[in-house]
């Protein structure tokens, strides 16, 4: 690990100011950052420890929303009584990720910002446009089993690997961000992560000097909530694909269908057209097929990950069938 200065700022604004330096990085649980520092994928000159700055609380707001501080651990979030009861898709998504040891350290902000698991990104001897702009993408013609099939670019086909944010995208949660000049902004989780485009080094909309302070969940809604994760082994593996769904029925018709997908793209994938297609319809195998067609209309495989296209289609159908109690 390259030497760095370790700093514990006095306040959040101080933390943001220190993070403005492009050679500085915030550290929360450290479960992603320290891993990457050991591999010399990340080589910050300074670590700004944002623990113990009061971001570790979950608060119930009077408008029915729930605010999860950026330093709330994944374990604390998944076990919070309100999250278990009103946002089970989020509790399930968190519990489906990593292991208890990791979730005990992993934080809400860190989980959102976790970097891709692309094997070329984590190996400094390999070309990677995300790690070293302009060096090329090893994965496009290489080993691409974990890689994206939606929203890719000729520069990068990496996926956002996390689970928690997929549920937050389905729930339409919002990320609160503080800047070094004390200004605050709120970005929907759905717009927080970027597509690789021609700036593959950019994972999300955070600018240097910006710190995530919290994520707010909207007031709970009626409906069945499901998180289905498909992976190489039944535990302790990243998603090949995952579906977060909040589905409500009115009579025998679908009244709400909020869906987001993991493992398919550089961000949790939310396609508003799916909700438009599904709402008001009678659930059926044919309808679920149509939803799969729409979702995967522009999907492109890269050889090794071609299987993700039929896998995503089937996983979506299985989740819709379960949520609407339909035989397929």
């Amino acid at each position: 690990m390259k030497p760095f200065q370790y700093t514990r700022p006095e306040s959040l604004v101080h933390a943001a100011q220190l993070s403005q330096d492009t050679e500085a990085l915030a550290i929360a649980g450290g479960t992603n950052l320290l891993d990457l520092m050991k591999l010399q994928v990340e080589t910050p000159d300074r670590l700004v420890d944002i623990n113990r700055l009061g971001l570790g609380e979950i608060t119930e707001n009077t408008d029915g929303t729930l605010r999860i501080g950026a330093l709330v651990t994944n374990t604390a979030a998944a076990n919070h009584p309100r999250i278990r009861a009103d946002y089970p898709v989020l509790a399930r998504a968190i519990l489906a990720g990593a292991t208890q040891q990791l979730r005990n350290k992993a934080t809400t902000g860190g989980n959102l910002c976790q970097r891709t698991r692309c094997y070329y990104f984590t190996n400094i001897d390999q070309p990677c446009n995300k790690r070293e702009p302009g060096s090329g993408c090893g994965a496009i013609e290489g080993v691409a089993r974990l890689h994206a099939v939606l929203g890719t670019s000729t520069e990068c086909i990496a996926t956002y690997p996390g689970d928690m944010a997929v549920a937050m995208s389905a729930l339409d949660a919002a990320v609160h961000i503080l800047a070094e000049d004390e200004s605050e902004r709120t970005v929907p989780v759905r717009d927080f992560h970027c597509l690789p485009g021609d700036t593959p080094w950019r994972d999300n909309v955070l600018e240097p000097g910006e710190i995530i302070t919290a994520v707010t969940l909207p007031p709970p809604v009626q409906g069945k909530q499901i998180y289905r994760k498909v992976r190489e082994r039944s535990s302790y593996a990243f998603a090949l694909t995952s579906v977060a769904a909040i589905i409500a029925m009115e009579g025998d018709r679908i009244a709400r269908a909020d869906l987001a997908f993991g493992g398919l793209a550089h961000k949790p994938w939310h396609d508003p057209r799916l909700s438009t297609l599904l709402v008001g319809k009678l659930p059926s195998a044919a309808l679920f097929d149509e939803a799969g067609d729409l979702l995967l209309e522009d999907a492109q495989g890269f050889g090794e990950n071609d299987f993700k296209i039929p896998l995503a289609r089937r996983t979506l159908a299985a989740v819709l069938a379960e949520a609407t109690e339909t035989e397929i």
């Binding site: 550290i27 320290l34 670590l47 420890d49 208890q100 005990n104 350290k105």
Partner: peptide, 18 residues
């Protein structure tokens, strides 16, 4: 794996100073 303040964690992904 060790237990820190009652919670199990991976001590390899933790800085002692933190």
């Amino acid at each position: 794996t060790v237990i820190v303040n009652g919670m199990r964690i991976n001590s390899c992904l933790a800085l002692a100073v933190m």
